[in-house]
Nucleic acid binder design. Structure first.
Lengths: 188, 188
DNA sequence: CTCGAAGTAAACAGGTCTGTTTACCTATGG
DNA sequence: CCATAGGTAAACAGACCTGTTTACTTCGAG
């Protein structure tokens, strides 16, 4: 009863690879079907339209960060290191969600809502960790940390250089420490 | 001798509008020619290929920031306000250079080099101002401020909300002040 | 053994894309 | 006055896009 991965999964894997590497608009469904080793008819059996496939691609990319008991500050800074590693290995092509928003004109496309949700979900991850650190305004700082991450992703896409991630990590340290100190030292 | 703007300029203006609003891949040359009120033949007389037109579009967007004698800190923070205003007026669609890199697969396309140059030029603008502020490491801080800006542009593209620009401005203040203090107070 | 589900390959329909070509139309300077 | 530069409109070539259809194959369950 050996069987390679189900067609649906192979199609999704092929779409993920090609959409991410080359862009959503740059890749046609024929190419995806060929990459998946599947006929176009089968592809359309699993995904009624290309838009459905795009939505499935982003939904599959919508991962939560594994919760951890490590110190909050460490977790946040380690996230910058993870991004640095992603950039360093060469196949980095920016944030798939941001790229999708760039490539898709229609604001009503399901992909846009997914992108907004994804970014908010990440922001809440920072916020929860920052609350444990007792910083002054966890919500505002969460937004700021995410701006740094977003900046790294865009900059790395353009420059292809992981140095930005290190700079962002340093900036994050300053922002966090500043918010911690401001809260513990004085009360104003 | 009245004459509306020269065809070349009208074509470029139409390309700028359509490329920025809808994306480079989403807009065809027919649409641009129609928007410019020009025949396709004329368009191809001025720009031999669509890629040439894309390069011209980005070259025209490659503006320097007007130099000013205002205090350096103020100039930097005011830049965040300018971005907030751009986002607020609704027609904001992200950074044209980053968008071009996202949409163009080929790393050898002239647009990629333009994008890299543009980002570096902006970074140098920060660096020059930060040198006047005598901060500890102007180059590193310039990178960090630019990460914040880049983050705002990406976030505003996804969320369509200018709140990110305010958060970035606040973060920039913390980073700058921290770097100034660290330099003037102690020497370590 | 046979039926049906699920797959393949390949052609097709109808659009759109970039870029070229054809034939015609002005306007202006010498 | 008229040649010519520079414009228009429209068709065309050839490629590629999404999505459909047709005809054929494979395979496992009852």
């Amino acid at each position: 009863m050996y069987k390679q991965a189900a067609p649906g999964e192979r199609i999704l894997a092929a779409a993920d690879k090609l959409f991410y590497e080359q862009g959503i608009r740059a890749v046609g469904v024929d190419t995806i079907a060929a990459e998946a080793g599947v006929s176009k008819r089968t592809l359309y059996n699993y995904y009624a339209t290309k838009d459905d496939l795009i939505a499935a691609y982003l939904t599959a990319r919508f991962k939560h960060i594994a919760p951890s008991d490590a110190p909050a500050r460490e977790q946040i800074l380690a996230y910058f290191d993870r991004i640095a590693a992603m950039v360093a290995d060469g196949s980095f092509r920016g944030c798939p969600f941001v790229n999708a928003v760039t490539e898709i004109g229609d604001r009503k496309h399901a992909a846009i809502a997914l992108a907004v949700q994804f970014k908010e979900q990440r922001r809440q991850w920072y916020r929860a960790l920052l609350e444990r650190l007792q910083v002054k305004d966890p919500d505002a700082l969460a937004t700021q940390l995410q701006l740094l991450v977003e900046g790294v992703l865009a900059t790395a896409l353009v420059r292809g250089d992981p140095g930005a991630a290190r700079a962002a990590r340093a900036a994050a340290e300053v922002l966090i420490d500043s918010a911690v100190r401001r809260n513990t030292r004085r009360k104003r």
